[in-house]
Simulated scan of single mutants.
Amino acid sequence: MPSFDIVSEVEKQEVKNAVEQTNKEVSTRFDFKGSDARVEQAEYVLTVFADDDFKITQVLDVLNNKLIKRGIDIKCIELGKIEKISGNKVKQSITVKTGVETELAKKIVRIIKDSKLKVQASIQGETVRVTGAKRDLLQDAIQLVKKSIGDFPLQFGNFRE
């Protein structure tokens, strides 16, 4: 029976490359001369350090551009609040969301069930597996989910006959 998985994955190496490129650009830019602006990475949590709120937005802008160039959808980035640290320095934490959250997975399953397509959707951890009798039905399900869920980056993989 044909099936496919709906997942949301981000390559950690691409995020690391984007962070390194951001740090390199920030260290060479004239407007950051003498500034302690940088981005640090711990797994899928990024921390942006800067001298003030304006510089944090500038570093975030550079980071977003680098992430886009590396093929990472910035919809999977969740910004934390800006916190003050020693003196006039500030930091902001950024979480790179991976995996389909339970709430979103339930929404996807509900959309597929309400569509009356002859496919079954089940939640398996951080993925949603969709199975059906024919390949065409699965392709219709993919199109339906793409149209319905636009605010979160989803990939459709592990297609099996």
Score class of each variant (00 low, 15 high):
residue 24 K to L: 11
residue 120 Q to I: 03
residue 130 V to Y: 13
residue 50 A to M: 03
residue 40 E to A: 00
residue 63 L to V: 01
residue 39 V to G: 02
residue 145 V to I: 15
residue 84 K to C: 02
residue 97 K to V: 10
residue 89 K to P: 02
residue 113 K to A: 11
residue 49 F to D: 12
residue 95 T to A: 13
residue 115 S to C: 07
residue 37 A to E: 14
residue 83 E to V: 01
residue 93 S to V: 06
residue 68 I to N: 13
residue 74 I to K: 10
residue 59 V to C: 06
residue 125 G to P: 11
residue 122 S to N: 13
residue 159 F to Y: 10
residue 160 R to A: 15
residue 4 F to D: 09
residue 41 Q to P: 01
residue 158 N to C: 01
residue 90 V to I: 08
residue 133 A to I: 06
residue 157 G to S: 10
residue 136 D to Q: 13
residue 38 R to N: 14
residue 35 S to L: 08
residue 8 S to Y: 05
residue 16 K to P: 03
residue 98 T to R: 15
residue 149 I to Y: 07
residue 34 G to L: 01
residue 113 K to E: 14
residue 148 S to A: 15
residue 76 C to Y: 09
residue 107 K to M: 08
residue 51 D to P: 00
residue 118 K to I: 05
residue 112 I to M: 05
residue 130 V to F: 05
residue 126 E to D: 15
residue 59 V to R: 10
residue 66 K to D: 15
residue 104 L to S: 03
residue 118 K to N: 15
residue 5 D to G: 00
residue 17 N to R: 11
residue 139 Q to W: 09
residue 78 E to M: 06
residue 132 G to D: 15
residue 114 D to R: 12
residue 20 E to T: 07
residue 92 Q to V: 00
residue 2 P to L: 04
residue 45 V to G: 02
residue 145 V to D: 12
residue 99 G to F: 06
residue 17 N to Q: 12
residue 91 K to A: 09
residue 127 T to C: 02
residue 98 T to E: 12
residue 26 V to K: 11
residue 98 T to C: 04
residue 97 K to Y: 07
residue 159 F to P: 04
residue 24 K to N: 14
residue 127 T to Q: 14
residue 130 V to Q: 15
residue 78 E to W: 03
